[in-house]
């Protein structure tokens, strides 16, 4: 089943084109690594999917509906680039931050019900951070904050998770367990994952598809096929293709 369908999407900021004529389809159960050099338009593309950035031309369909008509935001979990837009002075508890992930399921005059707290407790338990529930978000370490934001993304039981460089705040050990968790969510729970990362070593290890953009779409398909593709070898050169295909142990 198609979760996300991008057709000929172009995005322009001022006079420069940031994303040019990109098309691809993501199906349920996919684990897609989104890679590309700095300024390639990765974050912009993801923000366009989420409706945060307007597209200049083309179309975005989410779960079979055009972006303009789409309203089932609880089907999408989003973990932005590390705390980039979060108000660090805000005195929010972990419980309150995770609660924000449930607002997508509510309509006008959002009322918190007993079942919401049950869901929050369950997800905090699942991620092993139930002990942080009453702590202030701003007082947590970078790694702990990232886990809380992951809980916020997961609490609405989404069908697709979108991550923008989620592992930058994590130490190598936490990074590995973070990716193992993503693998579990993808394989056991069937959640589709779109992951922006510069570390293609993790894409090779955990994702089954690679989406490589450099303003234009360069490659979209199975990771293993990318590594064997002569076309990609001639585009990137043998050395760079090898670097992208390197997998972490």
């Amino acid at each position: 089943m198609s979760i996300l369908e991008i057709k000929n999407v172009s995005i322009r900021y001022n006079q420069s084109e940031v994303v040019k004529d990109v098309s691809f389809t993501i199906n349920s159960g996919d684990f897609v690594g989104l890679a590309g050099p700095n300024g390639a338009g990765k974050t912009t593309l993801v923000k366009a999917i989420l409706g945060l950035v307007p597209i200049t031309s083309g179309s975005v369909e989410l779960f079979g509906e055009t972006k303009e008509k789409f309203s089932s935001w609880s089907k999408i979990g989003y973990l932005p680039q590390k705390s980039s837009t979060i108000n660090v002075l805000f005195p929010a508890t972990v419980n309150e931050v995770v609660m924000l992930g449930l607002l997508s399921q509510k309509t006008w005059f959002k009322k918190i019900i007993k079942n919401d707290q049950f869901k929050i407790n369950a997800i905090l338990q699942d991620l092993g951070i139930v002990n942080l529930k009453k702590r202030m978000f701003s007082e947590l370490s970078g790694g702990q904050q990232q886990k809380v934001l992951l809980a916020r993304a997961l609490v609405s039981s989404p069908e697709v998770l979108i991550f923008d460089e989620p592992s930058t705040a994590l130490d190598p050990e936490s990074r590995e367990s973070f990716f193992q968790l993503l693998e579990r969510l993808n394989k056991k729970n069937g959640i589709a994952i779109i992951l922006i990362t510069h570390d293609t070593g993790y894409i090779g290890k955990y994702a089954n598809k690679l989406l490589y953009i450099d303003k234009n779409l360069i490659y979209f398909g199975k990771f293993s096929e990318f590594c064997e593709s002569e076309k990609m070898k001639s585009y990137f050169g043998k050395y760079e293709q090898h670097l992208i295909c390197h997998q972490h142990d």
Binding site: L50, G51, L52, S71, W73, S74, I76, Y78, P80, T85, I86, N87, F90, A92, E96, V97, M99, L100, G101, L103, S104, K106, F109, K110, I112, R152
Partner: peptide
Amino acid sequence: YFFYWDLFSATFDEEYAKTTGI
């Protein structure tokens, strides 16, 4: 009172609030 969670979410993280349909 009625817009408490919308105000809370938009103040804590406006970009994320938009992705939840606020």
